[in-house]
Design a binder for these strands. Sequence first.
DNA 1: CTCTTAATAGTCAGTACGACTATAAAGAGG
DNA 2: CCTCTTTATAGTCGTACTGACTATTAAGAG
Lengths: 241, 241
Amino acid sequence: MEVADYDKHAYEPFAVTVDLAVLTLRAGALHVLLVERGQEPYAGHLALPGGFVQPAESAETAARRELAEETGLFDVSGLHLEQLRTYSEPDRDPRMRVVSVAFAALLPDAPEPHGGSDAADARWVPYSAARPLAFDHDRILADAHERVGAKLEYSCLATAFCPAEFTLGELQQVYETVWGTTLDRPNFRRKVLATPGFVEQVPGAARLTGGRGKPAALYRAGPATALHPPLLRPSREGRPA
Amino acid sequence: MEVADYDKHAYEPFAVTVDLAVLTLRAGALHVLLVERGQEPYAGHLALPGGFVQPAESAETAARRELAEETGLFDVSGLHLEQLRTYSEPDRDPRMRVVSVAFAALLPDAPEPHGGSDAADARWVPYSAARPLAFDHDRILADAHERVGAKLEYSCLATAFCPAEFTLGELQQVYETVWGTTLDRPNFRRKVLATPGFVEQVPGAARLTGGRGKPAALYRAGPATALHPPLLRPSREGRPA
DNA sequence: CTCTTAATAGTCAGTACGACTATAAAGAGG
DNA sequence: CCTCTTTATAGTCGTACTGACTATTAAGAG
């Protein structure tokens, strides 16, 4: 079949890429993985990592491949990768028509990327210092942040930011950092423990959080994926007067 | 600049399409707009309407254009159109590599589509009778249903299914139909009215819902877009024992 | 005129949540 | 060694929200 006949429409080829908003927590601050562009346009600017989708792979597969290439990680199979949305404005790349499928990825720890061939200069940048980015990546990054913040409310996604075993204080830090708020510690604890399957206590040991204070019990992620009822962000649009 | 040099990757062209899951409520049942395919593959099968993205338009623009063409509607500017996700599995179309950006659209009333040139046979089909569809459209439709059901929980989207003026009973029917549950009427009413900006009462008249019973007050959509706190679906994963 | 239907008003108990206080267990600094 | 600080954990209390109900009102059907 001739492609031009397809469903009575003209067939127009597009370049399809993936863009990755890879988020992690380092030293209590949200960081995003960025690469420095070496070519025009936006040479010297920071941009989200990404690349072309290959002929035989899906956008999800391409996203995992690019993630492995740019971070040097090899266990990309287990981590959380979420399709954000697709950006297709005709002028978003000045050179040609590029449709980009954006993903958000959440990493627990933050190894400094020892770039593969691809990303000699990929590095973690604090979220607050990430702008301005090349192309429409500012918007993609903002959308990723908003999506992750929203998903924390009604899913167990927060554990994706934590190592295999973590304390409730660390889990709370995830919420506080992504939401940019502070939470009441006893209330947070009560809420998390009251949600069946969110976290499970590791029987044996307790960990010293790195320094002072009473050692905290260790937990690992439970089998649940959704939070019922949700853990809502404070403030936003306030209560009815 | 030569496209093959773009960011050290090979440039591969893809066909980019939009697929539309257009939902409405007719006679208390969820319906979806489908077209009958005239060509192979899947000739004679039902499929979601859609088409190619043109060189100068975004996927959102293409979705609105296709929607106008396939339904014969002209006021597509005001209705709710939401990007679902992008489907890019390499073998989703047996003919060629097609990446499709899927949208969910919500229509208030349900005029029988008087097809433009494009969709001589576009028609409303009850959601329960919609499968099997061509390509991976079963999955797209299911994703659209799930997304719409989830958005009803925390957004004011339900009014998009209703005409400009509606009764609380009609609004409740939207929730019940999309969620496939029944809701307690007084509780639903209390919840909706307690959310500021969700609905506003039309001062003058009351409407007879079409037949029996006490006439209901008319409401129109308010300025709010989000529900705080959300209106959660019942059941799902039950309460902790 | 009565029955049915649907809208609206109101009650009540269980639960969740925000704000708060109290206690326990570690390190830091004298 | 003793105390202060820090962090984890336990518990309290009042308000708001929710689910399950009952009651009343206003229409059409027969």
